[in-house]
Amino acid sequence: MTTFYFVRHGKTELNLSLRFQGGKIDSPLLPIGIEQAIQAGRYLCDTSFDAVAVSTQKRAMDTANYLLKENDYLDGLTVNYYDSLREIKFGKREGIEIDHTDEQTKNLRQRPDLYDPTAFGGETIDSLVKRSTETIEQISKKYPDGKVLIVAHGVLLITLINSLIGKEKSQWREGGPLANTSITILEKENDLQNYTLKTFNDVSYQSQNEEA
């Protein structure tokens, strides 16, 4: 059985300003985002990971670094970086303020099966889930009895997780958005197609200090 620990990156400047932060843009972690990552690391400090897979975007890489610095089992641990774990691409909307009344923004959040990013050159939900699922499947085959840390992004993780546990496409955003540095744990039995959800969007370890 492979056990996956999915962690969203820490809070960033663009998160705070409520702007689209997709696969073609980055923003520094806020002090609270760094602290969230450190707290997540302390929470998982006694978990011995067999592998770590991280998005190639800086906010995810920085989060992984702060998290892993707290871990007690780093000797010999290899961290691999994947373009396939980058956030969904928002095309011309990257970096602009989110308009919650926009039809496609509503679809992205509530009905991903209806989401059509053609007008602004964005990435489809199907593309996002396909590339991320292929990576997770490859890792599960390589570590059939391992514990694997995945550090990536909000839209990617919630759609990926819901897809892996067998939800319909219309429900792929259910339970989202995931909190920054939240931990979701899935288990994959070697002979089963779907994954089992063990822990979802866990931020129980976080202090209540939300100052940016």
Rank of each mutant, 00 (worst) to 15 (best):
T159L: 05
G22T: 02
E87Y: 01
L29A: 08
L68C: 10
P117F: 08
R59A: 05
K147E: 06
E187D: 14
Q104H: 13
L178V: 02
L30Y: 02
Y73E: 07
L114P: 06
F4W: 05
I125G: 00
I139Q: 03
I38P: 05
F120A: 06
L114E: 09
Q138N: 15
E13G: 04
A37Y: 04
A212E: 13
F120D: 05
E123G: 07
I98S: 06
L30H: 03
S84L: 07
W172P: 00
K89N: 15
L160I: 10
K130C: 10
R19Q: 14
T159M: 08
G121S: 08
L178Y: 00
S27F: 09
L18N: 15
D26A: 06
T105D: 05
Q138P: 04
T63P: 00
K130T: 12
F49I: 04
L156G: 02
E123Y: 09
G33D: 03
A179Q: 10
Q57R: 09
E70T: 08
L14E: 11
T12R: 06
G76N: 10
E123S: 08
E134Y: 10
G176N: 07
G146I: 03
L192A: 15
K69T: 11
I32F: 08
L68I: 12
T135G: 05
T78K: 15
S48D: 15
I165V: 14
S140F: 02
Q104W: 11
S84F: 02
A40R: 00
T124K: 03
G121I: 12
L77Y: 04
V151Y: 01
N71R: 11
S127E: 15
T2P: 06
D116L: 07
T196F: 08
R8H: 05
K167H: 13
E134K: 14
L178Q: 01
S17V: 10
S163K: 08
L29Y: 05
K58W: 10
L192E: 15
F49Q: 01
N65F: 12
P117T: 02
E134H: 13
I34G: 00
D99V: 09
R19P: 11
I150P: 00
L74N: 14
